[in-house]
Simulated assay, not measured.
Amino acid sequence: MRVVAFVDEGHGHREAARHFRVSPKFVNDLIKPRRETGSLAPRPQGNGGGYGKLAGVTGRIEARVADKGEITLDELAAEPARTHGIDMHRGTVWRALRGLGLTHRKRPSGA
């Protein structure tokens, strides 16, 4: 990146900010990770997963879907509330199922 190369040539952060018409904070934010990691690669985003309210019960949810293939999201959301005291919305259960690689299949009635 040109800003980093300009600073590497011996110019100060404020001088680089004026030269490239950016804020000094932008220059500092570019230089700091490179100083710490030696790379300009972006940092990983998100929390890494596995830390939500369903982290302890995803295995149980997956087993329930495998046991009873026609279970609804509302039923899946109600079970942890009864057994573990974890209150959740059906959207939370859907995101957990999607994270497990399980999909919703629409089937015609009577099939």
Score class of each variant (00 low, 15 high):
residue 1 M to L: 08
residue 1 M to E: 09
residue 3 V to Q: 05
residue 4 V to G: 02
residue 5 A to E: 15
residue 5 A to V: 14
residue 5 A to W: 05
residue 6 F to H: 14
residue 6 F to W: 14
residue 6 F to Y: 15
residue 6 F to A: 03
residue 6 F to P: 01
residue 6 F to R: 03
residue 7 V to L: 04
residue 7 V to W: 01
residue 8 D to V: 14
residue 8 D to L: 14
residue 8 D to M: 13
residue 10 G to Y: 07
residue 10 G to I: 10
residue 10 G to D: 10
residue 11 H to T: 04
residue 12 G to V: 06
residue 13 H to W: 05
residue 15 E to F: 02
residue 15 E to M: 04
residue 15 E to Y: 03
residue 16 A to F: 03
residue 16 A to P: 00
residue 16 A to S: 08
residue 17 A to F: 00
residue 17 A to C: 12
residue 20 F to L: 08
residue 20 F to N: 01
residue 21 R to L: 08
residue 22 V to H: 00
residue 22 V to R: 01
residue 23 S to I: 04
residue 23 S to V: 06
residue 23 S to Q: 07
residue 23 S to F: 07
residue 24 P to N: 02
residue 25 K to A: 12
residue 26 F to E: 02
residue 27 V to Y: 01
residue 28 N to G: 10
residue 29 D to R: 14
residue 30 L to N: 02
residue 30 L to P: 00
residue 31 I to K: 03
residue 33 P to N: 11
residue 33 P to C: 08
residue 34 R to L: 06
residue 34 R to T: 02
residue 34 R to I: 09
residue 35 R to Q: 12
residue 35 R to T: 08
residue 36 E to P: 02
residue 39 S to Y: 08
residue 39 S to L: 07
residue 40 L to Y: 12
residue 40 L to R: 14
residue 40 L to F: 11
residue 40 L to Q: 14
residue 40 L to V: 13
residue 41 A to I: 09
residue 42 P to G: 13
residue 42 P to C: 11
residue 43 R to M: 10
residue 44 P to A: 08
residue 48 G to F: 10
residue 48 G to L: 05
residue 48 G to S: 10
residue 48 G to I: 06
residue 48 G to E: 11
residue 49 G to M: 07
residue 49 G to N: 09
residue 50 G to R: 15
residue 50 G to K: 10
residue 50 G to I: 04
residue 51 Y to W: 06
residue 51 Y to V: 13
residue 51 Y to E: 14
residue 51 Y to K: 10
residue 52 G to K: 01
residue 53 K to F: 05
residue 54 L to C: 06
residue 56 G to M: 05
residue 56 G to H: 10
residue 57 V to G: 00
residue 57 V to C: 05
residue 57 V to P: 01
residue 57 V to I: 15
residue 57 V to T: 03
residue 57 V to F: 01
residue 58 T to M: 09
residue 59 G to T: 08
residue 63 A to E: 13
residue 63 A to F: 06
residue 64 R to H: 12
residue 65 V to A: 04
residue 66 A to E: 13
residue 66 A to V: 11
residue 67 D to N: 12
residue 68 K to A: 12
residue 68 K to W: 10
residue 69 G to K: 15
residue 69 G to F: 06
residue 69 G to S: 11
residue 70 E to K: 13
residue 70 E to Y: 12
residue 71 I to H: 03
residue 71 I to K: 04
residue 72 T to S: 15
residue 72 T to Y: 09
residue 73 L to C: 08
residue 73 L to S: 05
residue 74 D to W: 07
residue 75 E to Y: 08
residue 77 A to C: 10
residue 77 A to V: 02
residue 78 A to I: 05
residue 78 A to S: 10
residue 78 A to G: 11
residue 79 E to R: 11
residue 80 P to A: 07
residue 82 R to S: 13
residue 82 R to P: 01
residue 82 R to H: 07
residue 83 T to S: 12
residue 83 T to I: 13
residue 84 H to L: 10
residue 85 G to W: 05
residue 85 G to I: 07
residue 85 G to V: 10
residue 85 G to D: 08
residue 88 M to N: 02
residue 88 M to F: 03
residue 89 H to K: 14
residue 92 T to K: 02
residue 93 V to T: 04
residue 93 V to G: 00
residue 95 R to D: 03
residue 96 A to V: 02
residue 96 A to P: 00
residue 97 L to D: 04
residue 97 L to H: 03
residue 98 R to Y: 03
residue 102 L to W: 04
residue 105 R to M: 09
residue 106 K to S: 12
residue 107 R to C: 11
residue 107 R to L: 13
residue 108 P to C: 07
residue 108 P to A: 12
residue 109 S to E: 11
residue 110 G to E: 09
residue 110 G to Q: 09
residue 111 A to D: 13
residue 111 A to T: 13
